Amino acid sequence: MNGMARGLSWLVRRRAEAVQLQQQQARGIRVQVRNDNLEQALTVMERKMRASGMERLIRRQVDHHLKNSEKRVLARKNLMLRVRSQDLARKLRTILLKKIRSPLPYR
C-alpha cells in the first residue's frame, strides 16, 4: 500500500509539473521590436527568459551527446555545490546549537 501511495504521489507531482510547464509555454514571451532595433529586442527577450526560468528549463533538456570530459566537469561542479551547501548547513547548525545551549544573560 505504501509503495502504491508513493507511486501515486509521484504521478500527481509529475502531472502538476507538466501542467505548469504547459501554462508557461502557452503564455509565452512576447517582445516588441521598436524602430527596427532587433538587437535591443533580443536582449530584452534574453532578460525575460532568464527571469522566467525558461532558460534553465531549456538547458536542463540536453539532447546532444556529452563528451566524457564534459561529464567530468559537470560532475565536479555538482560535487562542489553539494559540498559547499553541506558545509554551510553544518556551520548554521553549530551556530544555532550554540544559541540554543547558551544560558540566557541575567538582567
Results as ranks from 00 to 15, higher is better:
residue 5 A to P: 01
residue 71 K to V: 14
residue 86 Q to G: 08
residue 85 S to R: 11
residue 76 R to P: 00
residue 6 R to K: 13
residue 10 W to L: 15
residue 62 V to N: 13
residue 96 L to D: 04
residue 70 E to P: 03
residue 42 L to H: 03
residue 81 L to S: 05
residue 8 L to T: 13
residue 106 Y to T: 15
residue 56 R to K: 12
residue 6 R to F: 03
residue 66 L to F: 09
residue 100 I to L: 12
residue 79 L to G: 04
residue 95 I to F: 03
residue 45 M to I: 03
residue 38 L to V: 15
residue 2 N to I: 14
residue 20 Q to F: 00
residue 20 Q to E: 14
residue 88 L to D: 08
residue 79 L to S: 11
residue 9 S to T: 15
residue 30 R to W: 00
residue 74 L to H: 11
residue 44 V to T: 15
residue 26 A to W: 02
residue 58 I to C: 06
residue 94 T to S: 11
residue 65 H to M: 08
residue 71 K to H: 06
residue 1 M to A: 13
residue 89 A to F: 03
residue 75 A to I: 05
residue 24 Q to Y: 05
residue 99 K to L: 10
residue 68 N to D: 15
residue 19 V to H: 08
residue 98 K to Q: 15
residue 45 M to G: 02
residue 93 R to M: 01
residue 85 S to H: 05
residue 44 V to K: 12
residue 103 P to D: 07
residue 70 E to G: 06
residue 79 L to I: 04
residue 46 E to Y: 01
residue 98 K to N: 13
residue 38 L to Q: 11
residue 70 E to Q: 12
residue 8 L to C: 08
residue 66 L to H: 07
residue 69 S to I: 04
residue 43 T to S: 12
residue 7 G to M: 10
residue 81 L to N: 05
residue 85 S to L: 09
residue 86 Q to A: 15
residue 53 G to N: 03
residue 24 Q to I: 10
residue 81 L to F: 01
residue 9 S to N: 14
residue 71 K to Y: 05
residue 98 K to L: 13
residue 65 H to Y: 08
residue 5 A to W: 04
residue 78 N to H: 10
residue 95 I to C: 05
residue 63 D to V: 09
residue 11 L to F: 09
residue 60 R to V: 10
residue 3 G to H: 03
residue 6 R to S: 10
residue 25 Q to N: 05
residue 59 R to K: 11
residue 31 V to P: 01
residue 42 L to P: 01
residue 10 W to F: 09
residue 9 S to L: 15
residue 38 L to D: 10
residue 86 Q to T: 12
residue 19 V to C: 06
residue 16 A to P: 01
residue 40 Q to F: 04
residue 54 M to E: 04
residue 104 L to P: 05
residue 107 R to Y: 03
residue 101 R to T: 12
residue 17 E to F: 09
residue 53 G to E: 02
residue 16 A to G: 10
residue 64 H to N: 05
residue 30 R to C: 01
residue 28 G to T: 00
residue 59 R to Q: 11
residue 28 G to I: 00
residue 40 Q to D: 14
residue 42 L to F: 05
residue 29 I to R: 00
residue 56 R to F: 00
residue 5 A to Q: 14
residue 50 R to T: 15
residue 6 R to Y: 03
residue 99 K to D: 11
